[in-house]
Amino acid sequence: MPSADSESPTKPVEDSASRVDDDIAVGFDLAFQRRWWRFEFAVWTVFTTLVVLAMFGCFGRGHFAKARTAAHDGSLDVQYDRIERFGSPSVVTVTFGPRAIHGGKAQLWVSESLMNALGNQRVVPQPVEAILGDGGILYTFAATKPPATAEFALQPRAVGGANLQLRVPDSETVNARIFVMP
């Protein structure tokens, strides 16, 4: 006798799961589970390594990430993070040497990557003048005598490698390779 729901497909009820001792139906598979446990162990090993590396700052914000580079002629000394993190604030500190300051001002040319890849938020102290050109910006700070320090507050906005170049006019260019983590 056809019933109203004769159209809907059915399937006999059977235990598809494997049985333990032919008694109880559980999808129990110790071989699979052992493989999974091995995988689990491997993942935790990798994770622990990552965290230990992170403690030392291999992924930014730590000891290994800190870097320092200077011009051989002593005009410029730059402290920066060689590993930055996307969107996370950090500071580049530029110290001018005696050669960089004359006539009551210090000049510093910075490549454009400071703005676009590294997302420069502000310059401290406020430069007297900023002139665009030559693929970068030429900042002029009022200065008396060394030690003199300027800071750039960064907030990187592009993941990947960035090349930051800094130079006091007519001196050697200082190159900082920076990698931005996601």
């Binding site: 333990v20 559980v26 999808g27 699979f32 589970q33 999974w36």
Partner: peptide
Amino acid sequence: GRIVDGTPLV
């Protein structure tokens, strides 16, 4: 399914 949810264990 077993990878995401695991299996029951006795």
